[in-house]
Simulated assay, not measured.
Amino acid sequence: MSLTHNPALTGQIIGLAMRVHTHLGPGLLESVYERCLWYEFDHNNVPYARQVALSLHYDSVMLDCGYRADLIVDNEVLLEIKAVETILPLHEAQLQTYLRLSGCRVGLLLNFNTVSLKHGIRRRAL
């Protein structure tokens, strides 16, 4: 994963997520928002990987523990998609953990279950 981050990429991701939210609004499943983001990324030539397996390095062994990042955009930005009433500290801790496991330096937690998506965005960096 990248050791640097292009802030324009984060802006583009947020813009496309806002487009999805504007079209759909709150109240749908996470998988619906994620699928619509795939469409937007494809339509805008944004490279991404979906449901990326995250291995855990423990005592000189790599373990597959079943963790998956929802999306990793351009090998730089990890996206964790939510459709929950409230972002909990647990969700933010999950994002931080996924950042460490993935090697990405920047992560976005996107909660689509909000009236305005701007209130559902959390950006974190390692």
Rank of each mutant, 00 (worst) to 15 (best):
M1N: 07
S2A: 15
H5V: 15
N6T: 14
L9S: 02
T10C: 08
G11R: 15
G11F: 09
G11T: 13
I13N: 04
I14V: 14
L16V: 15
V20F: 03
V20K: 04
L24E: 02
G25N: 08
G25W: 06
P26G: 09
G27R: 13
G27D: 08
E30A: 01
V32H: 03
Y33G: 00
R35L: 10
C36I: 05
E40A: 05
F41Q: 00
D42G: 07
D42T: 11
V46C: 00
P47Q: 00
Y48W: 10
R50D: 03
Q51G: 01
V52C: 06
L56N: 07
H57L: 15
Y58T: 08
Y58I: 12
S60I: 04
V61I: 09
L63Y: 13
C65E: 04
G66W: 06
Y67K: 07
R68H: 08
A69K: 08
I72N: 01
V73E: 01
D74I: 01
N75F: 14
E76S: 07
E76R: 01
E76D: 07
L79M: 10
L79K: 03
E80R: 06
E80L: 11
I81A: 00
I81T: 00
A83S: 15
V84D: 04
T86M: 10
L88Y: 11
L88H: 15
P89S: 12
L90W: 14
E92I: 12
A93D: 12
L95T: 02
T97S: 05
Y98S: 06
L101Q: 02
C104A: 13
C104N: 05
C104P: 04
R105P: 01
G107Q: 06
G107H: 07
L109N: 04
L110Y: 05
F112N: 02
N113T: 12
N113C: 09
N113R: 09
T114D: 08
S116C: 11
S116V: 12
L117T: 06
L117S: 08
K118G: 06
H119E: 15
G120L: 12
G120N: 11
G120K: 10
I121S: 11
R123A: 09
R123Q: 12
R123M: 11
R124P: 08
R124V: 15
L126Q: 10
